[in-house]
Simulated scan of single mutants.
Amino acid sequence: MLGIIGIAVIFVMVFGGYILAGGKMGIILKALPFEFMMIGGAAAGAFLLGNDSSGAKHTLKDIGKVFKGPKWKPEDYRDLLCLLFELVRLARQSPVAVEEHIENPEESSIFGKYPKISADKYAVELICDTLRTMSMNYDDPHQVEEVLDNRLEAMEHHAMHSSHALQTTADALPALGIVAAVLGVIKTMSSIDQPPEVLGKLIGGALVGTFLGVFLAYGLVGPMAGKVKSVVEEDMHFYNLIREVLVANLHNHATNICIEVGRQNTPSHVRPSFGDLEESLKSVKQEAA
């Protein structure tokens, strides 16, 4: 919703100010389809040239993040802590019993309580692979922490591709606007024998190309790239929470301490309160009993 409001404000302020200042939309509207064809088409072609098919699909899909915002909400962080509590406690009580949950998370009764988390393959794989590693006695906390750090870094690098691709396109748009404007000037020069009022409209149409390139770059595509980046960074806190809890578990802290370490390392705006989490954990314990 905020993204739609932002786009509306941009258009109203820019074109509203232009009209109130006495500008005429006729020249812009007449030149806009042709200028947009050149600039938008060239930008789309450059985008396809600089990305493979999977990268292009990934970027187009991630544009939705501009309007949807972060995937993980505060209640999801609470659910994640409850899920990790159940798995860590079970792993300590019975390493054999936890295997059925980490080997077949799709059929796990524990994972099944949290459908949104279960539907995220990155979160499930991160949890299951780390717990599986612990069951193999590969329990050096520093080695496991390094593996998790490398994995999260690779995950973030991949997730940031869309932001980089959009930013590269935004950086190219002003130059493509100049290309369109130069072509407009060439067209104008071919009509140099026309009266000033005709030349004025031709020059105005040519300048629409420069305007459109800069407007798209700094008013739309650039801010979208920044928004996608901020959403990715926000969602990465969810996966970092998994790391914090499982590394604390490797240091043989009590299960409640592991969960509290994760809670306190969660950003404040999505961090569940101590009392809220305690109530949720009590419900988990009662169900297990």
Rank of each mutant, 00 (worst) to 15 (best):
S273V: 04
T255S: 02
H253K: 06
P267C: 08
C258S: 08
R271H: 07
Q264R: 09
Q264S: 07
S268A: 13
L277D: 03
V261G: 06
F274W: 10
L250N: 03
P272Q: 05
N249L: 07
G275M: 14
C258K: 05
I259R: 00
V261F: 12
H251E: 15
S268F: 14
T255W: 01
N249M: 10
C258R: 02
F274R: 11
P267A: 12
N265D: 11
H251C: 09
N256P: 00
H253M: 09
N252V: 06
N265A: 13
G262E: 02
R263V: 01
D276T: 15
G262H: 01
N265W: 07
S273L: 10
V261R: 02
V270F: 12
L250V: 09
S273Y: 09
N249D: 14
R263K: 07
L277A: 02
I257M: 06
G262N: 01
P272K: 07
D276V: 14
C258Q: 04
A248M: 02
N249T: 09
A254E: 10
N256H: 03
S273Q: 13
S273P: 08
P272R: 11
T266Q: 09
N249E: 12
I259P: 01
Q264A: 12
D276M: 12
G262K: 05
R271N: 06
E260R: 03
A248Q: 04
N256E: 13
H251W: 15
R271M: 12
Q264P: 03
T255V: 14
V247R: 06
T255Y: 00
P267V: 08
A254H: 06
E260D: 15
H253E: 14
H269G: 06
I259D: 00
D276C: 13
L250G: 08
H253A: 05
N265G: 07
A254C: 04
S273A: 14
N249S: 11
G262M: 03
C258D: 03
H253D: 09
D276K: 14
Q264M: 14
R271W: 05
L277I: 03
T266E: 07
V270N: 13
S268V: 12
G275F: 15
C258H: 06
E260P: 02
H269V: 07
N249G: 10
V270W: 10
T266S: 12
L246C: 05
G275Q: 11
H251S: 13
A248Y: 00
L250A: 09
Q264T: 15
R263P: 01
F274K: 13
F274I: 10
D276L: 11
C258N: 07
C258G: 08
L250I: 07
I257L: 06
R263I: 00
P272H: 07
F274C: 10
V247N: 05
I257K: 00
A254N: 09
A248T: 05
L277P: 09
I257H: 08
V247A: 11
S273I: 03
V261L: 05
S273F: 09
